[in-house]
Amino acid sequence: MTTLVVRRDAATEKFFDGTARGELLIRHCTACGAHAAPQFEACPACQEPTAAWVPAAGTATVISWTAIHGRPGDDAPAPQRVVALVELAEGPWLYAALNGLRAGERPWPGMSVNVAFEHPEGGEAIPVFLPAA
């Protein structure tokens, strides 16, 4: 599956520095200790205005999933890609591609997955998830 080229902006600079190193950075509130998804600049648990960045362990479980179907080609079946809503071991949720499934195979809620990184030419490194071995 080709991964889209994504560029960083001011809000995502640190996050993509992390993915380049092979780290999935999430937010950690130094005031209350809560973890939050990376896009939260303030702590959603205690409203502390600045949350620090910490690397997530990279293990997660599937909360929900969908398979997006493209249009079929003349001689080709419709392409499908599986997208999951995952819950990291630390608690935050992320949307990410779920790769490494056999054709037609589908995930299930509670399925264990691990983060991996794709490095599309000319873009930032992107976190994806793979079934845990």
């Binding site: 994504v6 990376p38 591609a97 994806v128």
Partner: peptide, 12 residues
């Protein structure tokens, strides 16, 4: 595709 929106798009 840039920033958080780009990350969503990359996820599909």
């Amino acid at each position: 595709a840039s920033g958080w929106r780009g990350l969503m798009a990359a996820a599909g």
